[in-house]
Structure formats: C-alpha cells, structure tokens
C-alpha cells in the first residue's frame, strides 16, 4: 500500500514537472517567433503587409540563389537588390542577358524614362554583377529543342 502511495506521488510530481517544462518550451517558442515576426500576438492594429518578402528571411541563400528574389549570390547582390527591386520584379532582371555595355544602356534608359536615380558608385558594382551573372549566350540563328518532356500520346 505504501508503495502504491509513493508511486502515485512520483507520478504527480513527474506530471507537474513535465507540464512545467512543456509550458516553458511553448513560451520560449512563442518568444522566439515573436522576435522573428514582431507582429505575432501584438494586439494593436498592424498595417497591411503588401509583400511576403518583408517578413520572410531576407538573406536566405540556397544553391547559390537568393531565395527572396531569385538573384544569383555574388559580390554586389545586396546593392543589386536595393537598387533594382523597388520598382520592378527581380524577374525582369534575371530573365534578361546582356554584356556590360548592354546593362549600362538599360540603366541609362531607366534613368531617362523611368525615374531611376543616379546610382553613383553603386553603378559599377551593379553592372559588374549583372554582366558576370547574366551574360549573353551564343545561340546562333535557331537552337535545338531543349527540355523535351516525353510522354506516350493517348490515342
């Protein structure tokens, strides 16, 4: 009988301790989450967040690609992000190919017609980054069909 009483006491203590640590872990988790995403559990009115990029991990790089924008990771990445993405999508940059001269002429066109500001010292950083990572390929007058997904045609 005494044994049983003792066992029950231990059980109750064990339960209490588990509950305590469980709550601690949840609390700590919420705190960390709150640090990462300040709007979590804040009860005041938060302004509409227009793009997910503002809260996503801005610096995450995977396989040499900056995930939030799709830009290749290289010297000048941050300068390129800051200068190129306020007005248009990074996709407009990454789908294009040009040499230094070509990228400079695109920048001039944006400055003359699209309200792009004077890039100052950053211009050479940006142009070097773009000409290296988004250089033209020699395609000739017609390329082979590529990336064909073969499938059995149903009759």
């Amino acid at each position: 009988m005494k044994d049983q009483e003792f066992r029950n006491k231990v059980k109750r203590i064990y339960l209490g301790v588990t509950l305590f640590f469980g709550l601690l872990v949840i609390g700590a988790g919420a705190l960390i989450y709150k640090l990462a995403y300040p709007s979590f559990l804040s009860f005041d009115d938060v302004k509409q967040i227009e793009t997910y990029r503002e809260v996503e991990d801005l610096d995450k790089i995977e396989n040499g690609i900056h995930l939030a924008t799709g830009f290749k990771d290289d010297v000048g990445l941050q300068t390129v992000i800051v200068s190129c993405t306020p007005c248009h999508s990074a996709k407009l940059v990454t789908q294009n190919r040009a040499n230094k001269e070509g990228w400079v002429s695109i920048i001039r066109w944006m400055q003359e017609t699209q309200n792009l500001w004077d890039l100052g010292k950053n211009e050479s950083v940006i142009v070097n980054y773009l000409a290296k990572n988004y250089a033209p390929e020699e395609k000739g007058r017609r390329v082979n069909l590529e990336d064909i997904e073969w499938y059995d045609l149903e009759k």
């Binding site: 995403y37 709007s39 559990l41 804040s42 009860f43 005041d44 009115d45 938060v46 302004k47 509409q48 967040i49 793009t51 997910y52 809260v55 996503e56």
Partner: peptide, 16 residues
C-alpha cells in the same frame, strides 16, 4: 489565437 490575429494582418503563408 485566430481571433486575436490583428485586423489587416495576413498570415505569412497567405501574403504572396
């Protein structure tokens, strides 16, 4: 806490 998600705040998964 869905009731206390602030007005105008969209969960991260829904923002894109």
């Amino acid at each position: 806490f869905s009731a206390s998600i602030p007005k105008g705040y969209t969960p991260i998964a829904l923002q894109n």
